[in-house]
């Protein structure tokens, strides 16, 4: 849903970042307003996943220049946990397994960290249990997974459902979903996409990072961005994704071969 007067939630300006000595992001510009769903597409190595990790504050990446404003405030100055508490969520491409840590307890601690930031009362185990049972329905997840260690022994699809369950509990304002569709069969994709659609609202914004059109059949984006060589090469509507599906990415190479526009830095 595009409303030009909707508040800006996330504003990425000329963002450059590297991992070790390797520059990955080379001038990303992107603005997310409330109510919008954006998709970032591109080949492997184009910088899509790096963008998501930099936004979430992964310590392996260093921002070398540019800025990210979250509701007008400097996001990059915050620790990863603080970013999460104020409403930024990263759905992991590869959710991490944490042996010995109960999924239920993990979810409760995370939810309470967010609630505390929102000025809401912390939930005790009973109140949280009620909440989590309700939110499980968003992703049609078996409650048995609450009793296991975080993501341990979960199938690929179960891990992704667990990610969306976390999103449902944390109620982020900006959700970045990194290849949430990878490793999902059609049924799981439908369930996960259904969960994301339920959670997307007029006050939130979603950034989908994906290779494939099929996710965008289920979650219809307002904007599609094509990323290559660490920047956004082209932006369009949902038709751009269809065009990519049809034409592939070869034209991207052709476009990259052109002399760079004046705005490009470094």
């Amino acid at each position: 849903m595009i409303r030009s007067d909707a508040p800006i939630l996330l504003e990425i300006r000329d963002l450059h970042a590297r991992v070790e000595d390797q520059p990955i992001l080379r001038g990303v510009n992107l603005t997310l307003r409330a109510g919008e769903i954006h998709a970032v597409m591109g080949r492997n190595g184009s910088g899509k996943s790096t963008l998501s990790k930099v936004l979430a504050g992964h310590p392996a990446y260093t921002v070398t220049s540019g800025s990210v404003l979250y509701r007008g405030a400097d996001l990059l100055a915050l620790e990863p946990e603080q970013r999460a508490r104020i409403g930024l969520f990263l759905g992991f491409q590869y959710p991490v397994e944490i042996p010995g840590v109960s999924n239920l307890e993990f979810l409760r601690v995370a939810t309470n960290a967010r609630r505390q930031e929102q000025g809401l009362e912390e939930l005790d185990t009973f109140a949280f249990d009620d909440l989590v049972q309700e939110r499980l329905r968003v992703v049609q997840m078996d409650p048995a997974f609450l009793e296991r260690s975080v993501n341990q022994g979960f199938s690929g699809g179960e891990k992704k459902r667990n990610e969306i369950l976390q999103m449902a509990l944390l109620e982020p304002l900006v959700a970045i979903l990194d290849e949430t569709d990878s490793g999902l069969d059609i049924d799981a994709l439908r369930i996960v996409a259904g969960g994301v659609n339920q959670l997307a609202g007029p006050d939130t914004s979603t950034l989908l990072i994906t290779h494939y059109q099929r996710l965008l059949d289920a979650i219809v984006p307002d904007f599609v961005h094509v990323m290559a060589a660490g920047r956004i090469l082209r932006t369009g509507g949902k038709d751009l994704a269809l065009e990519l599906e049809e034409r592939g990415y070869d034209w991207v190479d052709a476009e990259l071969a052109q002399p760079l526009a004046g705005a490009e830095v470094g």
């Binding site: 504050g57 970013r83 999460a84 991490v96 975080v150």
Partner: peptide, 8 residues
């Protein structure tokens, strides 16, 4: 990082 990214 996974735990931190959830506000912990």
């Amino acid at each position: 990082f996974y735990l931190q990214s959830r506000g912990i």
